[in-house]
């Protein structure tokens, strides 16, 4: 085997996180094609680590790797790459991954494809699929200079069989100290919003509502339903129309109500990540090409300033028994 794939485990305080098994699944698909050896790399400061299923594990240990820094992780990645000579490096597209993965690619002078959502095998080579243009288009990439660093979207690959035989564990003691980064600490967000978390119907506002006053339309629409709550896209929260505890998406809340109504939301992958498990999705958008329509059960191509009042009138008619 002269083709080698290296994945970098996603971890928290030395504990390997489940998304790592999605990286392994992705590696297995690519590895099946090139007949590659697959090694997982764990940067950290953990003297005892359990083996993982389906791949050998190389633990890069250093006191300077006790917590994540881009600097520390890139040094660990470079060290491991020197050892494993990977053709492909796979990293999770998380807030950690997208912080350091492009740096690793640059330092190894390889290629880089971020937020990969799928892999296509055809006529003797591999294409990497990712989304762009506000989610409207998908792009198929071909690798270039090696190594190729890819970051994989969480959820894009079903996790690798954790029952597979565990691989070997090897330790490498390193002396990695971040020199440009200091005083690292974390805070856990306390953005609870029980109304939104328990709602059966979520009416969500995007930048397309245009102005704060139009939030009234969203509220009135929500009032047409039982157990409803209002929410918003990141831009709606950035604009100060809604509190951040009402943001749905990758960096906001994940919701899965019976009904999700997206009003003036374009449908970027980061927003979809927070609402894709909703039972029924309705979208109101004036752009017929908006990506949100690809993720909707019912599509309404309309100006929301006209459509929402019409819908409210309709609901009132039924409420008053006029139909």
């Amino acid at each position: 085997m002269d083709h080698s794939i290296m994945i970098i485990c996603e971890q928290s305080e030395g504990r390997i996180l489940p998304v790592t098994y999605e990286l392994l699944a992705c590696a297995a698909r690519i590895g099946g094609f090139y007949n590659s050896s697959i090694t997982a790399v764990l940067p950290g400061n953990t003297p005892d680590t359990d083996a993982i299923s389906g791949a050998d594990l190389l633990v890069i240990n250093s006191p300077g790797l006790a917590e994540y820094t881009a600097e520390g992780w890139e040094k660990a990645a470079l060290l491991a790459a020197g050892e494993l000579k990977p053709n492909i490096i796979i990293i999770a597209h998380t807030s950690t991954g997208y912080d350091y993965a492009p740096r690793v690619a640059a330092l190894l002078d390889g290629s880089c494809i971020t937020s990969v959502s799928g892999i296509e095998l055809s006529d003797g080579s591999i294409r990497y699929r990712r989304s762009g243009f506000h989610g409207k288009l998908d792009m198929l990439y071909k690798e270039g200079k090696q190594p190729l660093v890819i970051t994989v979207l969480p959820g894009a690959f079903p996790a690798y069989d954790q029952q597979a035989a565990p691989g070997m564990v090897r330790y490498m003691n390193a002396d990695i100290q971040p020199v440009h980064t200091s005083n690292v600490h974390f805070s856990i967000s306390d953005q609870s919003n029980t109304e939104l978390e328990h709602a059966e119907v979520v009416i969500a506002a995007g930048k397309g509502i245009g102005k704060a006053e139009n939030l009234e339309l969203i509220r009135e629409m929500a009032a047409c339903f039982n157990r409803s709550a209002i929410a918003g896209s990141r831009v709606a929260c950035d604009n100060g129309w809604l509190e951040y505890n009402a943001q749905v998406g990758l960096t906001g809340k994940k919701v899965s109500p019976q009904l999700y109504v997206a009003c003036g939301i374009s449908g970027s992958m980061q927003h979809i990540a927070g609402m894709k498990d909703s039972k029924t999705v309705v979208s109101i958008n004036r752009d017929p090409d908006a990506a949100i329509f690809k993720n909707s059960d019912i599509c309404i191509i309309e100006d929301l300033e006209k459509f929402i009042p019409a819908f409210i009138r309709e609901a009132e008619k039924h409420h008053e028994g006029r139909v």
Partner: peptide
């Protein structure tokens, strides 16, 4: 010779998408 984009496609659809 870094990575290249070979093709651009309409995004795939995850739901039925009934347009009223």
């Amino acid at each position: 010779k870094y990575e290249t984009v070979e093709k651009v496609l309409e995004a795939g659809s995850d739901r039925a998408g009934l347009t009223l």
